[in-house]
Simulated assay, not measured.
Amino acid sequence: MRKWRAAAKGFIVAVLGVMAFAAPQIAPAGGAKLRLATEAAAPPLNYIGKDGRLAGFDVDIGNALCKAMTVECKWVIEDWDNLVSGLNQRRYEAIVSSLPITGEQQKNVDFTNSYHVMPAAFLGAETLEVLKIDKTTLTDKIIGVEAGSVHEAFLRDNFADIAQIKPYDLIAQATLDLVGKRLDLVFGDRIELEYSFLKTKEGRGFKLVGPSYTDAKWFGAGAGIAVRKGDDALIERLNVALARIRADGTYKKINDRYFDFDMYGN
């Protein structure tokens, strides 16, 4: 999803000075502070709202965790490419920015339990009458996908023998060809497809087709909160807080504010 995020960077730079004051600070009684970093460039996960304040699913989850831990949230906005280095340079204690739990990332940081899945989906024309996705419905279809992504790996592992898989440098290039009727379907990150395409004027006349895909074999263990290597005490506190907001309904309220499906993966 990094390429999707890149489009928002110019706007982020313009408002960084404001955000030091405008980011919402949650301060229950207790006095302790927890510095959390996010990118603020990937709506609806993390972004700057029209009021100039930090917002999004990640931000609301982070604030809820701070409240459950009885600490004050202090938000830091960081460029995606610098999130991990900033953590290890002790500019903040944790990253709440939908960072995927991967073996490569785990060389540099430790993760909490997953707090949301990273679902993939097919995108097609509203007129497409496909009740389910299988080798019958995808036979001879031309499917666009981001080159080198986990989504391309999934397609090649499951449908390379019956469909034509066409990789693109950017998923936006694939959706452009979908609009131009040079593709039958696009496959990619569900949230990206919804918010960078379906919710725009270019996305009129298109829809998500079939189910969401979350199989860990291709799409990993989801997104976790990253902390510095060896900070087991903070991981335990965050995991306890995550379980608490799941149990008391706070997570669901936040989820339903942004999504019409369960981001936790149930």
Rank of each mutant, 00 (worst) to 15 (best):
K207N: 04
E129P: 02
V130K: 13
L193G: 02
F154H: 03
G188L: 10
K199I: 05
T175A: 05
A153R: 07
T200P: 07
R182P: 02
E194F: 00
L138C: 09
G205H: 10
K207G: 01
D177A: 02
A160Q: 11
K201L: 07
N158K: 03
K201M: 05
K199Q: 14
I142L: 11
V179M: 06
G148T: 12
Y195L: 02
I142N: 13
V179R: 14
V145Q: 04
L155M: 04
A120I: 00
F197M: 11
R204P: 02
E202L: 08
E192T: 14
A125C: 00
A120N: 06
F197G: 04
L198G: 06
T139I: 10
I143D: 03
Y213V: 09
K181P: 00
L170A: 15
A172D: 14
K141P: 10
G205N: 07
I171G: 00
I142P: 01
A125W: 08
I133Q: 07
R156F: 11
L198K: 12
A153V: 12
A147S: 13
Y213L: 10
L178G: 08
E192Y: 07
I191K: 01
E126S: 13
K141M: 10
R182Q: 14
L185S: 11
Q164E: 15
V179S: 06
K199P: 01
A163T: 04
I143G: 04
L176H: 06
S212Q: 08
I191L: 05
E126K: 15
I165D: 01
T214E: 14
A172I: 06
S212K: 01
A174F: 10
S149H: 06
R204Q: 15
K132V: 11
T139L: 12
L193C: 04
G203A: 09
N158V: 02
D215E: 15
I143A: 04
T137C: 13
T137Y: 09
K201T: 08
A163K: 01
L193N: 05
A174I: 04
K207R: 10
Y213Q: 03
E202I: 03
T136V: 14
S212M: 11
D184T: 02
L170T: 11
F197W: 14
G180N: 13
E126D: 11
T127C: 03
I133H: 03
I162E: 05
E194P: 00
E202G: 03
T139R: 12
D169S: 10
I165R: 00
K201S: 13
E194G: 00
L155F: 02
A163D: 08
E194K: 05
E192C: 09
K199H: 13
F122D: 03
H151T: 03
L198T: 01
Y168H: 10
V145F: 09
E146W: 03
K132F: 09
F187I: 04
A121S: 12
A174S: 13
Y213S: 05
D184N: 14
D161H: 06
R182I: 00
K181D: 01
F187S: 01
I191F: 02
I171M: 08
A125I: 00
K141N: 11
L128H: 03
V209Q: 12
Q173P: 01
S149F: 08
